[in-house]
């Protein structure tokens, strides 16, 4: 039992490490994008059963902003970038260098901005993962949605169409000076892909 726990801990550490590498790349890209210094940290990364996904966001009906990319290559799957709608507004403020509370609605321009940012984060994470295990992963065109968290999850799963049991959750914090915003990246892959990932890393 202790052995299994330590294996899980080891896998968790590796997932967090990959997340941190991805966050580093994303922070560089994002800083260039807004021309200011932005930091991204990864407080937590973990594999979570699909049933628990909505809990992570605070409930099925919580309104969220989502960017979804299908992932092609050796590990077919999907990557979702999610922030609660309230944090989405803050994120627009942060990216545009405004005080929190300035942006009141997410309109056409704000959507485009969030889509870009979600895409940068998702692609950076994917790139880190692909490099870590030395495979090729290609994100497809990012799509955008803003609605109930549960509907975003189930629709993503339906888009993928395969049997998934777990998703990798990478919790991130986007930081600029004293401002912090939490965002979550979900990577959904088939069970056999997780086996392959852990095998390649050597923690299976």
């Amino acid at each position: 039992m202790a052995k299994r726990n330590s294996l899980k801990e080891l896998q968790k550490d590796v997932l967090k490490e990959i997340g941190t590498i991805g966050a580093g790349h994303a922070a560089t890209a994002l800083s260039q994008f807004v021309d200011r210094k932005i930091l991204i940290t990864v407080p937590e990364a973990n594999l979570v059963p699909l049933k628990k996904l909505t809990e992570v966001m605070g409930g099925a009906e919580i309104p969220v902003v989502a960017v979804f990319n299908k992932v092609l290559g050796e590990i077919p799957g999907g990557i979702l970038f999610l922030v609660p709608s309230k944090s989405g507004l803050k994120m627009v403020d942060l990216l545009e260098g405004k005080n929190f509370g300035t942006t009141k609605i997410i309109g056409e321009l704000e959507r485009e901005l969030l889509r870009q940012v979600g895409n940068i984060l998702a692609a950076s994470y994917l790139n880190a993962l692909a490099k870590f295990i030395n495979i090729v992963l290609i994100p497809s065109v990012p799509s955008f949605a803003m609605d109930m968290a549960g509907a975003i999850f189930s629709s993503s799963l339906a888009e993928l169409g395969f049997q998934a049991e777990k998703a990798l959750i990478v919790e991130t914090e986007i930081i600029e000076k004293a401002s912090r915003i939490k965002a979550v990246i979900f990577f959904i892959a088939e069970p056999k892909s997780w086996e392959m990932i852990f095998k390649k890393i050597g923690v299976n």
């Binding site: 989502a66 979804f68 299908k70 889509r115 497809s140 065109v141 990012p142 799509s143 955008f144 949605a145 609605d147 509907a151 975003i152 629709s155 339906a158 888009e159 169409g161």
Partner: peptide, 17 residues
Amino acid sequence: GAFMFIGSENSRVGQRN
């Protein structure tokens, strides 16, 4: 059966459902 994601090469799962 909604169409949730804007801007994708969507398979329109909702419509087919």
